[in-house]
């Protein structure tokens, strides 16, 4: 059913639909999605949302940044009025807000409404960035917006458990106020490894977060860099393999083997993770719910085109 909707969506034309989503107060939830051409390839059971209790792992390379997929999930969930927790280890809130604006969601208002939660994992994450005691954060004089929830910042701690606690507190507080389907997004797990935490701890964090998401009926989305070059490092390789082992669904984004192209920016593979196979054996999911396919994509200004191999605009 969702496939049919998606096809309709394409036929109507993207721009007009985006506008309708933006300005119509009664837009249809099933139509609210980030990239129309991606949606039919995602798990269909709870479309446009991800199935609850799963872990979607996204791997990318330097040549083909998979950040656009995160923006897809952020905008999809926010449009569907479902809470999103974004742990930004690589980017700042402003970046996500501006991209969100291009995709037709206003993260600032979503944040005020309590739908979108941003965890700052950039400025205070490591022991290097611990600020000097003399420096103070400016007290914003505009204290009228007290209703706005306080932004959560990950403080440095040698123990990743503290970081887990911070995220857990936030997620549980959201869950306490609503019974919706939550999406927890970790932008760039690789950062944690790079910043000196051992691979084992990072994997434990992922596992804990996955359990947490299952508990609160949410989904976990993680992004991790998996360049082939870096596989020489034991830690890095272990992290990639470990995270993929925890995953139910895997989306692998990489550049074309043949190099760059004007009309194809890379290929995107939908893969089945061990978790999916486990569910499949248990009969919880059907095989056709996540067909393992490899597609091509092209990133545009405010959209991403996903198409079958050989169907790029340059060919057709």
């Amino acid at each position: 059913m969702s496939r049919a909707v998606a096809t309709n969506y394409v036929i109507y034309g993207k721009a007009s639909n985006f506008e309708r989503d933006l300005f119509s107060p009664h837009y249809n939830h099933t139509l609210a999605m980030g990239y129309p051409s991606l949606q039919p390839h995602l798990p269909a059971s709870h479309a446009p949302l991800l199935p609850p209790g799963i872990h979607l792992s996204i791997t990318d390379t330097q040549a083909s940044d998979a950040n656009f997929l995160l923006h897809h999930f952020i905008s999809t969930y926010v449009k569907a009025d479902q809470p999103v927790v974004l742990v930004g280890l690589a980017g700042i809130l402003n970046h996500y807000t501006l991209v969100g604006r291009k995709l037709g969601v206003n993260l600032t208002t979503a944040k005020t409404k309590g739908i979108f939660h941003f965890v700052d994992g950039l400025t205070q994450l490591t022991d290097y960035s611990a600020p000097n005691k003399d420096f103070v954060k400016p007290t914003t004089t505009t204290t009228t917006t007290t209703a706005q929830p306080q932004q959560v910042t990950l403080q440095y701690s040698p123990n990743l458990k503290d970081i887990y606690k911070t995220i857990e507190d936030l997620v549980r507080s959201i869950q306490a106020t609503s019974v919706k389907q939550l999406c927890l997004i970790l932008d760039d797990v690789s950062i944690l490894l790079n910043c000196g935490w051992p691979c084992r701890d990072v994997l434990a964090l992922i596992r804990y977060l996955k359990l947490l998401c299952e508990e609160v009926n949410g989904s976990l989305v993680t992004l991790i860099h998996a360049d082939a070059v870096m596989a020489d490092e034991v830690d890095q390789d272990g992290l990639v393999k470990g995270v993929l082992y925890e995953a139910d669904y895997i989306i692998d984004v990489r550049g074309l083997d043949s190099g760059g192209s004007r009309d194809v920016h890379g290929q995107i593979s939908m893969l089945r993770g061990p978790g999916f196979l486990r569910r499949l054996r248990a009969g919880q999911v059907k095989e056709h719910e996540w067909p393992a396919v490899t597609l091509h994509y092209k990133v545009l200004d405010n959209n991403v085109d996903i198409f079958a191999k050989g169907f790029s605009s340059g060919v057709l």
């Binding site: 990318d60 390379t61 330097q62 040549a63 083909s64 940044d65 656009f68 550049g255 074309l256 190099g259 760059g260 192209s261 004007r262 920016h265 890379g266 994509y297 092209k298 990133v299």
Partner: peptide
């Protein structure tokens, strides 16, 4: 130089 790829111009290195 005929690139203009989405992620980056990193294809340059491979070609």
């Amino acid at each position: 130089s005929a690139k203009g790829t989405g992620g980056a111009a990193g294809h340059n290195t491979r070609s």
